[in-house]
Amino acid sequence: MDENPLTQAFRLILELDPALVGIVSLSLKVSLSAVAVAAVLGLPLGALLALYRFRGRGAAVASLNALMGLPPVVAGLMIYLLLSRAGPLGSLGLLFTPTAMIIVQTLLVFPIIAALARQVIEDLWDEYREQLQSLGSGRLRAIPTLLWDARFSLVTGVLAGFGRASAEVGAVLIVGGNIDGVTRVMTTAIALETSRGNLALALGLGIVLMLLGLLINISIYVIGEQTKRRLG
């Protein structure tokens, strides 16, 4: 008799099956890199939008909020057309590589981080503005100060971004191609096993994905709470 697929999934996890470990570590590498790039770009941009008033700011904020709902498949298609040999960046040869997946996930995560940063920094600026101005800080100089002081709230946005990145399948499937051992990540592996009718194995992989997300969230939450209690 065949092994129960759920048992099989957990056996693969416990035995650190090399293929599974490869898939999990690629998932982490892609999503964490995407979140890192999106944070480096999105946090300062969100802060700029919070502190500066300029023509078109309303439109920028609205489109940022709208981009939070960008369907991953559409993001995937856009990046596919950009990176395809027939597209403007085709000569880079990035299509069907992990880099392409990082790019598309960055596009998905960036609006979440930037929009949240704008909201949080705007509120904090209300509280800090007079004091910082009194100390001689211009708006530009205030950005790193505000980002650092808002770090606990901002971590929430970064985590939400990581959740979106690691959970989505449509975008990485299109630009990554779900190539075995090269661009296969947790979600595309789950989609493939579902296609094969291996529902229990797919669910098992899904549970691994959720446990990983849970682990990351819990550790950051615990660290955050401890630091917050210490720093007030």
Binding site: V30, A34, V40, L41, T99, I103, L140, R141, I143
Partner: peptide, 21 residues
């Protein structure tokens, strides 16, 4: 901090590109 942010940004992009095996 503008220069600092620029440095971080290019570092992150480099990291992203470097992950292509």
């Amino acid at each position: 901090y503008a220069a600092l942010a620029g440095g971080l940004l290019s570092l992150a992009l480099l990291l992203a590109v470097a992950t292509a095996p």
